[in-house]
Amino acid sequence: MRVALFVPCYVDQINPEVGVSVVRVLRRLGVDVTYPEGQTCCGQPAFNSGFFDEARSVGRRFLDVFERERFDYIVCPSGSCTTMVSHYYPFIFKDLPDERERSETLGQRVREFSDFLVNVMGVKDLGARLEGRAVFHTGCHQRRELGVLEEPRELLASVDELELVGWENEELCCGFGGTFAVKMPDVSTAMADEKIKALQKSGADTLISGDSSCLMHLKGRLRRTGHDTRVLHLAQVLDSGKAG
């Protein structure tokens, strides 16, 4: 099994440890991991703001970079960035037959991290150990476009000493929404507060998600409001309790 890593730009720049955990988890399963170094960003920020030309231009580059690689799957530790490639490239390239076909072909091989582990590798127990009581936040693209809902929970259920608890209104968006977070800061922050209220009510000490962007938003608000809740990406949890 050969996997080309697609590391979202904000993971690359802000949370590289998430990418490192992905590599370690995959390698432990015997996956041959490669990282196409020409990659930058999938173009989602431009796309979400309506700058489709700019998104197409960045998207074309993404296609070029990954088409050059040899891999069975592209794996990405973000439901949102996965969706950009698998669902929204065909959307923005709708009227361009060549790119559309290329993006559809590539899109079928892009998998979100937990989806890849459970549905491609057939693994649910990675032998990880993490003490704590956690809630899981499913990013909206992962929930609605990808429909990858159970997989992260199945993986977390096998983590030793980790208790996964439910929380109120867990289907609600965290309020990040890309540039929405800065275009509509009041509403965006109020949405984060709604999640934080539910988080506190759940009694969890740890917040886990498959999307670092949601976590960046929620963590930013948690810290600002004086909460020290532990915030981790799913990959970091699955990589924990292992001595390399």
Binding site: P90, F91, K94, R144, G147
Partner: peptide, 10 residues
């Protein structure tokens, strides 16, 4: 339209 309407009510 490109989106089938049944995706979310899977």
């Amino acid at each position: 339209p490109t989106n089938a309407p049944d995706v979310a009510w899977t």
